[in-house]
């Protein structure tokens, strides 16, 4: 169980982004989070995945709190894949950093073999995002936080990737938090949908 207990956060002391938010995510559950631009969804995702420390409150992952000494069981797929990849590495090195992946798995995520020897600057945002997804889906991962994961993709690729991801989530019983401002996508993929405004209002 991934539990978020009463967290508050502000980038500076005067303006808080949010206050006192709680949430829980069970293994195997796909939870949607909906909210308008600039409301704090990405900030929230970064806190859950341990990239930012909340000012108050705690994030408890299967009974443990950050920081972990080992690989983080909560993996974040961000909005800007280009920032999360070393610009001087070729893509096979990028994948190699997190593990070994089967050709079949990579094919399912729509990763073409000829991209392996390219640099990140030579791939599109959507193509990079597939690599980010692949390296987040290592066996140690228990929870996946997808922040606008497929917003930059076309409809066909989007459908293909979601099919693969949903199948994996089910198979491995991962918990997934899907953050998006595309309500139809959330409706299609999630078991439960929360409005970020409601989360904010509940305190």
């Amino acid at each position: 169980m991934l539990k978020v207990n009463n967290i508050s956060f502000g980038y500076n002391s005067e303006h808080g982004v949010f206050k006192d938010i709680s949430l829980s995510l069970k293994p195997g559950e796909i939870l949607g989070l909906y909210g308008k631009s600039g409301i704090g969804k990405t900030t929230f995702a970064k806190i859950i995945a341990g990239y930012l420390k909340p000012d108050t409150g705690s994030v408890v992952v299967d009974g443990e709190t950050y920081p972990f000494k080992r690989r983080n069981p909560v993996q974040l797929i961000g909005q800007h894949p280009e920032n999360t990849i070393n610009p001087r590495w070729q893509m096979n090195q990028v994948l190699g950093e997190s593990g070994v992946f089967s050709d079949e798995f990579l094919r399912e995520l729509g990763i073409s073999n000829e991209w392996m020897h390219r640099f990140p600057s030579q791939l599109s945002g959507g193509e990079l995002q597939r690599f980010c997804l692949a390296r987040a889906l290592v066996p140690e991962t228990k929870y996946l936080i997808a922040d606008e994961m497929t917003t930059m993709l076309d409809a066909i690729t989007k459908a293909q990737i979601w099919e693969t991801v949903l199948q994996l989530i089910k198979q491995r019983q991962l918990g997934m938090l899907v953050i998006s401002h595309e309500f139809p996508l959330l409706k299609r993929t999630c078991h439960r949908i929360l409005d970020f405004e409601d989360l904010l209002g509940k305190n």
Binding site: A49, R70, R71, G78, R135
Partner: peptide
């Protein structure tokens, strides 16, 4: 940079 944070979260 963000890719270093990512690497840290991979347990490096």
């Amino acid at each position: 940079s963000e890719y270093i944070s990512v690497s840290r979260h991979m347990g490096k």
